[in-house]
């Protein structure tokens, strides 16, 4: 089934096409969901709600642009909206709680087998604001001005969050002597 047919099917509220679209873009959508969520359950939940928005707005989709870009935009904006909603109520663990994370005894094993998990964990330990701004800037490529507009904060605050996140991540990586990556940095 071609992408255009899938889109037309979704516009007709065809369940089969909706499922096909969901399956097709699941990796991309889950990637975005994971980076803006604190755990997998939350990511799956957010993914579904964001995809619901995609379906609700599918009639507005302009075929001149890539569908993946359009979906990505909706997803990022959805998670930013969620972030704004949660901002006042979420409380995060102090960075010092990193000590509770037990690294495998074998350093090499940690680097190879648990590197991804460890990076996720480090990211999750960042304050929500810093993590969100960092992901928006470093991964999704938003400029400071764009982030400031979307999160309703100043550009200077954006810069501070990004620098703070970088600094903390670097410190944490060094602290645990992940030599390979430290040298690469």
């Amino acid at each position: 089934m071609k992408e255009a047919e899938i889109i037309q099917g979704c516009q007709r509220n065809d369940s089969r096409c909706q499922q096909r679209l969901y399956e097709l873009y699941y990796p991309l959508m889950s990637s975005i969901a994971l980076r803006y969520s604190s755990n997998i359950d939350e990511a799956r939940q957010g993914l579904n709600f964001a995809f619901l928005k995609v379906l609700q707005n599918i009639e507005k989709y302009n075929p001149d642009y890539a569908l993946a870009t359009w979906i990505r935009t909706i997803f990022v904006r959805h998670f930013i909206d969620e972030y704004r909603k949660q901002q006042r109520t979420r409380h995060w663990m102090d960075i010092s709680s990193l000590q509770e994370y037990e690294l495998p005894s074998d350093e090499n094993q940690a680097v190879e087998g648990h590197m991804k998990e460890f990076l996720d964990h480090l990211l999750a330990l960042l304050p929500l604001s810093s993590r969100t701004v960092f992901c928006m800037h470093a991964v999704d490529g938003f400029s400071y001005a764009e982030i400031a507009g979307m999160l309703e904060i100043t550009e200077a605050t954006c810069r501070w969050h990004v620098n703070s996140a970088r600094k903390k991540l670097q410190e944490l990586l060094k602290t645990h002597e992940l030599k390979i990556h430290s040298q690469a940095l």
């Binding site: 369940s15 909706q18 499922q19 969901y22 399956e23 699941y26 990796p27 991309l28 889950s30 990637s31 969901a33 994971l34 980076r35 997998i40 990511a43 799956r44 993914l47 579904n48 709600f49 995809f51 619901l52 379906l55 991804k116 990076l119 996720d120 990211l123 960092f134 992901c135 800037h137 470093a138 991964v139 970088r166 991540l169 670097q170 990556h181 690469a184 940095l185």
Partner: peptide, 28 residues
């Protein structure tokens, strides 16, 4: 650090499970 996390986060995704679509369908 940006490069490290960009590569890492872009390559990370969830495994698709049919139950996930069931939930999505119920949501729709």
């Amino acid at each position: 650090i940006d490069e490290l996390y960009k590569d890492h986060l872009n390559s990370r995704h969830l495994e698709y499970q049919p139950e996930q679509w069931q939930h999505m369908h119920a949501l729709i």
